[in-house]
Amino acid sequence: MPVKLEWSSQPAAPGTHRAELNWQGAPGTSGALASALNGWQKLRYEVTEEATPGCDGVRYSYTPTLGIFTAVTSAAGEVTVSESRLRNAVERAQAHEGVDLGAELDRLTGRIWDEELEPFRYAGDGAPVRWLHAAG
């Protein structure tokens, strides 16, 4: 079924527009959606799939300057980082001068994507806020 998006002005970037869509789909649908949006290089987007029984949640964030960030999320929506990725970050910081552990952790948790996207997350004047999620 075709989906009609309601577009409104994006106050965070005058001259641009925003749309939000609440959706439901099978687990994994968010990855296909993020892949389709990734071809539109001037978009900023977030696609969030909530955790369901037997499936972790996932969040995809994209900005033209940073590219794509993907993270597994908890039932509370927080980014989770695996033990092996944390170990790798610590080892990189210990082995290489100039590699800052704090910066590595910020990268693993998507902090720079959050900082860049935050002004765009707020709805414009009177625009509704809608959450993207999938339920299995």
Rank of each mutant, 00 (worst) to 15 (best):
E20F: 05
A51V: 07
G54T: 05
A134E: 02
A13F: 13
G31S: 04
L86P: 06
P27K: 03
A76N: 09
H17V: 14
A76D: 08
P64M: 06
N38P: 00
A89C: 05
L86Y: 08
L132T: 11
H17W: 14
A76C: 05
V99K: 01
G126D: 13
E49F: 03
E78D: 11
C55T: 14
A76H: 08
W40L: 14
E50K: 14
A135K: 08
D56A: 14
E104T: 00
A93I: 03
V90A: 09
T65D: 14
Q94E: 10
D106T: 07
G110A: 05
Q10Y: 00
P2I: 03
S35D: 06
P53R: 15
P53D: 13
G126P: 03
A36N: 12
V79I: 04
A71R: 08
T29W: 03
Q24R: 06
A26K: 15
A76W: 02
G54N: 06
P128H: 06
A32K: 06
A127D: 06
W40D: 08
G15C: 08
D114M: 02
S61F: 07
A76V: 04
G54M: 04
P64D: 04
E20P: 02
M1P: 01
Q41Y: 08
P2V: 03
G102Q: 03
P119R: 08
P128G: 08
D125T: 15
V79L: 04
R44C: 03
G77P: 10
R18T: 09
A95Y: 01
A13T: 15
A93M: 12
F69P: 03
V99P: 01
G15V: 07
G102M: 01
L105V: 12
W40T: 07
T73N: 07
P119C: 06
V81W: 00
T109M: 15
P119V: 06
V79A: 10
T70P: 01
S9K: 09
L66E: 02
E49C: 07
R87M: 15
S35M: 04
G57P: 00
D100I: 14
I112E: 13
N22P: 06
D114N: 05
T70G: 04
E115V: 10
D56V: 12
S35T: 12
D100W: 13
R111F: 10
E115G: 14
Y60N: 04
E91K: 10
